[in-house]
Computed example of a mutant assay.
Amino acid sequence: MNIALMLGLAILCEVVATSALRAADGFTRPLPSLLCLVGYAVAIYLLSLTVRTLPTGIVYAIWSGLGIVLVAALAWARDGQRLDMPGMIGLGLIIAGILVVNLLSKSVGH
């Protein structure tokens, strides 16, 4: 499987799992709890495969950065959790950092 696809799927699984945490209600609700556990397990497994090829720090920066941005966007769209201007600027800086790492860093195999 393509390394970028694996990383993308790892990010997607982590976003789904994190987004289900609220519904899991402290792991007292079975279905959302299962979604959290399976989502995180698959995310970590796929993440472990990507670090075979790419540096761990780079993989983790992309995974966590995109995860933060996507979870915030989903919470905004689904739950109405609005961000103020400093929050939006912060997320913009995270996106800028991910772009710098991917487009300019020699640590990432292009």
Rank of each mutant, 00 (worst) to 15 (best):
S107I: 12
T50K: 09
G26K: 04
G109A: 15
A17F: 04
I89N: 04
A43Q: 05
T56A: 14
P32L: 03
A77P: 01
I3C: 13
S33Q: 07
R82P: 13
V108C: 14
G8Q: 02
T53A: 11
V38P: 01
L91W: 03
V101Q: 11
V71R: 00
G80V: 04
C13V: 12
G87M: 10
L37F: 07
S48H: 10
Y60Q: 05
G57D: 05
A61W: 01
V108S: 14
I95P: 02
S107V: 12
M88D: 00
L34T: 12
I3V: 15
G67M: 02
L12G: 14
I58N: 09
Y40T: 04
H110K: 11
L37N: 07
V15W: 00
L66I: 14
L9C: 12
H110L: 13
P30D: 07
G67R: 00
L99P: 08
N102G: 14
A20S: 13
S33N: 08
S105H: 09
A96E: 03
V108I: 15
A96T: 06
G39A: 05
A77F: 12
L70Y: 00
R52H: 13
L49D: 14
H110D: 15
A41W: 03
L66D: 03
A10V: 07
V100K: 02
L46F: 07
Y40P: 04
Y40C: 01
C36S: 00
G39R: 00
D79I: 08
P30K: 15
G65L: 09
L9H: 02
M85K: 08
C36F: 04
Y60W: 11
I58D: 11
L21N: 00
M1I: 15
V15Y: 01
P30N: 12
G65T: 07
E14N: 15
A96K: 01
N2W: 13
V100P: 00
M85L: 13
Q81T: 09
A43G: 10
G97W: 02
I94Q: 00
G97T: 03
G80P: 01
I58G: 14
V16E: 05
N2D: 15
I68E: 03
L83Q: 11
L104F: 15
G97E: 01
D79V: 09
G87H: 02
I11H: 06
A61F: 02
R78H: 13
S19H: 10
L93S: 10
R78V: 15
K106C: 13
G97F: 04
V38E: 03
Y60H: 02
L34G: 11
V42M: 07
V59F: 05
A4S: 14
V51G: 06
T28N: 10
N2A: 15
Q81D: 12
G90E: 00
C13H: 09
I11K: 01
I44T: 11
S64P: 10
L66Q: 09
G8V: 06
L49T: 11
W76G: 00
L54Q: 09
V38T: 07
V100C: 05
G65W: 08
L74Q: 07
R52D: 12
L54Y: 12
M88T: 04
R82N: 13
L21C: 04
L21Y: 00
I62K: 02
V42R: 05
L49Y: 08
T56D: 09
K106G: 13
C36I: 07
L83H: 08
A10C: 08
A43N: 07
G39C: 00
L104E: 13
T53Q: 13
S105Y: 09
I68H: 08
D25H: 10
